[in-house]
Write a protein that binds this DNA or RNA. Structure first.
Lengths: 246, 246
DNA sequence: TAGCCACGGATTGGATACAATTTCAACCCT
DNA sequence: AGGGTTGAAATTGTATCCAATCCGTGGCTA
């Protein structure tokens, strides 16, 4: 069942067309009509994909030209992204891709630690067999890949996917926001995983699926909380991830 | 020490100038410069103050005229308020004051139940004596008032005030959002409190201050979680609060 | 040489006018 | 009477212009 974990390398398989986010980040990839929503979606996937690293300045005019729109919808998109925690706006000055300090990142993980188990509890009763099989498959594919970007994508699809069947309105959005703000640091941290640490991550994923299969809400909550907590402690051991001075 | 609780009546003392929100809802009452931030702040206090009940439609033109601005900053303000959960935007159609179903409100309270104790834990070490005395005074004033709006204001200042000294960046905002979205239902629910229920609310407030004084993080977390949980269960017993069909 | 101030370019913020798109509801036709 | 259509009203987007603000540069001063 288990597979020898391979240390993850950063080199992407190729410059394949970015598969956008598999689990829609907010509404969906708004494609037609609403320019402001479309621009927000495109910028969001660009930021999450690492195209704009934290601290990067984003200019209204650039974005407007790049996406063939005027500045008004771009400004609205900025406000949306600010609410997502992806962008930091400073009045009369500009927009920057948000950057978290170690303390702030720790805070987000503490919050996730409390909130995601609750969301999973909401979702659990409605997860059907096919969905469980899918989660299992994702966990296995995560073990087998050695591409960071693919791992991140699978991890996101695994966890957010496990919450998908929750019929929640605010909690789901809230959790997606928390994931978005920490996406970049998750990438950095993934690169630092050594073999035993990666082994534990994968084991926890499989244990989580097992608990879900047994409809064991308490068990699933417990495993998930531990999973998040362990990641938080791991990040705290690597403060250098947050050192990127401008 | 304790005071005979008086059933709360809805009649306000008078149409005094609305004292805005004592605990700033987001940045502060932005007064000059940024029109979009100013409009967002004004609309926010208007909505929280019950001036626009849930389900009310808000037109860009009206707001623009009322606050002497063009529609561009109004639209940005809408986006900000949407992120606050105060307004629901529907593309090409308009903006409405958000309305929660019982299930959604329950969801928010479940979330608060998990998140606010954590925030209190962050804040607790930095709460000084003067602050504790202030919290005590607020709890006492809450017992003595019979005005709903004043109770709401004091309750907000008590709880959000107790989190104030937490040096958090995301958690504080998150909790404020959760408070904002449920403000209206808190008002409706407050009117339904009978005497023993009110008594218990007040007792919990005093117990919370006592735990804070003793720097008992676990105890404070526990009391606060119970406080929120009890409110949630109380709301669930009054589904009629959510029945306001358009 | 170090520090401070003023100036000017660049960028954001806002106003206005107008075109485009969408929604919704009344209306007409079969 | 029911279903499709049209048109008013609202939002959304574009274009243009100007004001306000910020930031770096350069020069002046101690």
């Amino acid at each position: 069942m288990t597979q020898a974990p391979v240390p993850l390398s950063k080199t992407p398989a190729s410059n394949l067309p970015v598969p956008t986010t598999l689990v829609p980040t907010t509404p969906a990839s708004a494609s037609h009509g609403n320019a402001s929503a479309r621009i927000a979606a495109l910028l969001r996937t660009a930021i999450l994909g690492g195209e704009y690293p934290p601290g990067t300045r984003i200019r209204q005019d650039d974005v407007a030209q790049r996406y063939g729109a005027s500045r008004v919808p771009v400004r609205e998109a900025f406000r949306t992204l600010e609410a997502d925690g992806l962008v930091t706006l400073i009045a009369n000055t500009g927009a920057w891709v948000s950057r978290l300090s170690l303390a702030e990142c720790d805070e987000v993980y503490q919050t996730r630690d409390r909130v995601e188990p609750l969301l999973l509890r909401y979702a659990l009763p409605s997860i059907d067999e096919a969905h469980m099989d899918h989660l299992d498959e994702l966990a296995t594919r995560m073990e087998r890949t050695d591409q960071v970007e693919e791992f991140l994508r699978l991890d996101r699809e695994f966890h957010l996917g496990s919450y998908e069947s929750a019929q929640t309105t605010v909690l789901g959005d809230l959790v997606r926001r928390l994931w978005n703000t920490t996406q970049h640091y998750r990438r950095a941290f993934t690169l630092l995983l050594d073999e035993p640490a990666a082994r534990m991550v994968h084991d926890e994923h499989h244990m989580l699926v097992a608990a879900i299969r047994e409809h064991d809400s308490d068990g699933a909550e417990h495993i998930l909380a531990g999973h998040i907590r362990r990641t938080r402690l791991g990040l705290a051991r690597h403060p250098e991830v947050f050192d990127t001075q401008p």
